[in-house]
Structure formats: structure tokens, C-alpha cells
Design a binder for these strands. Sequence first.
DNA 1: ACTTCTTACTTGCATTTTGCAAGTTAAAAA
DNA 2: TTTTTAACTTGCAAAATGCAAGTAAGAAGT
Lengths: 130, 130
Amino acid sequence: MTQFRSGCPIASALDIIGDKWSLVIVRAMVMGATSYSDLLSTPEKISTNILAERLRRLEDAGLIRQSLPRQGSIRGAYALTARGAALIPVVQELARWGESQLPDRWTPPDRFYAARPGDFDVRDGDAAAD
Amino acid sequence: MTQFRSGCPIASALDIIGDKWSLVIVRAMVMGATSYSDLLSTPEKISTNILAERLRRLEDAGLIRQSLPRQGSIRGAYALTARGAALIPVVQELARWGESQLPDRWTPPDRFYAARPGDFDVRDGDAAAD
DNA sequence: ACTTCTTACTTGCATTTTGCAAGTTAAAAA
DNA sequence: TTTTTAACTTGCAAAATGCAAGTAAGAAGT
């Protein structure tokens, strides 16, 4: 994404995550998903091309990152960055809205509402490069 | 909208408001917009066809309603319903995220963060039909 | 009364995004 | 070494978005 529609923080946020899938991916990662196949196996059945494109966009926007691949693995795991984890209160409010205002929705597990941005972005990287 | 991708309240919420414009419209209405032209004159420059279609969708989803037109007016004003006003905490969290995580965004006025769902949907209608 | 303006849209068409299905590449498992 | 699994890419149809122009009805000016 190159530019924002306006200086409004809401409109700008929607320029990044204003679509049907981005926050579903964030939700899945809050719930522990770390791999492409974890994300594919959510009940919403995202298609592979959309998932790949969305992961690229979210990485470009600095909301997620891929850790460097471990020995004998081609790709690293996906993780929320601090900026991505800062969306947790947003998805929690969205969940509360859906639960309270839409008929017959699932009740998210307690650990979803218990999640805090600080629980993520454990900042690995340079240390322990053995 | 006919059906949800899953029972997840987040995914279901996004089935309704998961696009670039719906929450911009809600924000404008929280800030006092009530007419089509109010909504057109936001800094994001929504196009007329999208605005008309989105208003229809939001009305179908029960998030906004048009009050019955007053004497000599063809259309009534738009207002948030209780269900639409329940989105206020969501847009406030989104604003906090945009402000804190994106560079150089505007600071919303205090009354935006002070808005509460209960301030809207004052339930006019039948009374005072003088 | 009659042109002009404003409000609230609709229509047409090009571009972009989404969605489904199938193909690809590399590592892991049998 | 054939088969699976993981992580994508590619092709193409369908839907959403965006821009520009057109329309209809009430309001305002003269």
C-alpha cells in the first residue's frame, strides 16, 4: 500500500486491514496459528492465493513477520509483530460486537479475550545464533 | 448478505463490515453526519455509487435506518440503530490503533473517544406525532 | 412562473479484488 | 524412490470498487 485516503486513523487503518480476511488471519494467529497450513485450516476456508497475497501485504505493512527458517525447513513460522499484536483489542471488540449483535455466533474461548498485545512479539532474532 | 462464512463472531462481523467504507460511514455518523451529502463530504471522497450501495447494505443489516421524511422532504435523515451504535467501541479501538501504529495520523477530537453507544438510537418515531 | 441549484441518487464502464481450481517445487515420510 | 505434505503460483471467472456522467424532485432565486 502506497498511500492513505486521508489522515484519519480509522480510514488509514482500513486502508491496511479493511477487507474480509486480514483480521481473520490475525484472529487465527492470536489463537496460535503459525504456519501457512494452520491458516488454511481455519473454518472460513480461505483460498490459497488470497492467503499468500494477504500474508505478503500484512508482512509489508509490518503486522506479521516470518522468522528465519530453521535447519532443513524452507520457510519460517509466521508471527505477529508488536504492530500486529496491537490489533488484538480491535479483534476482541469485533468479537464482542459479533457475539452480542449477530444471531447464534460461537462464543470464543476465554483465552481469546484474555490475550494481550504484550504476549506476542517475543522478539527473537539476533540472540542465540548458535 | 445471506450467510456467514463460519460461526465465528469476528468472521461474521467482517462479512457485514469487512470492507474499506462501512466503518468510515459509521465514524462519520458518530461525528454527526446524518445526510447523504454529509457523508459525501468526508475527506475520504467516497463515490456516490459506493455510498448509495453501502447505505443500502448497512440498512439491510440493521446498522442504520432512515427516519421517515419530514414535510416537503423526500428522504429522511440517516441515523445509527442500536446495533450500529454498538460498533462505536470497535471504531474507537481502530482509531487508537491507527493513531499509535501509523505515522502522522490525525488526532480525533475528544468527543469521538467520548461517544458511547447509548448516546445514539434515541428511539424517536411514534411519539410527538403532532 | 420559470430557470437554476442542491440533494439524493442511478447508470455505464474500466480497473481491481476475490474466489475457485489446478499446477509447481521442495522437503519429509513410507 | 515413489508418495505425501507444505507452501505456494498461475489462470480465469465473478464480484467489488472507482470515476464520470446522467436523472428526478424539491428549494431557491428572479
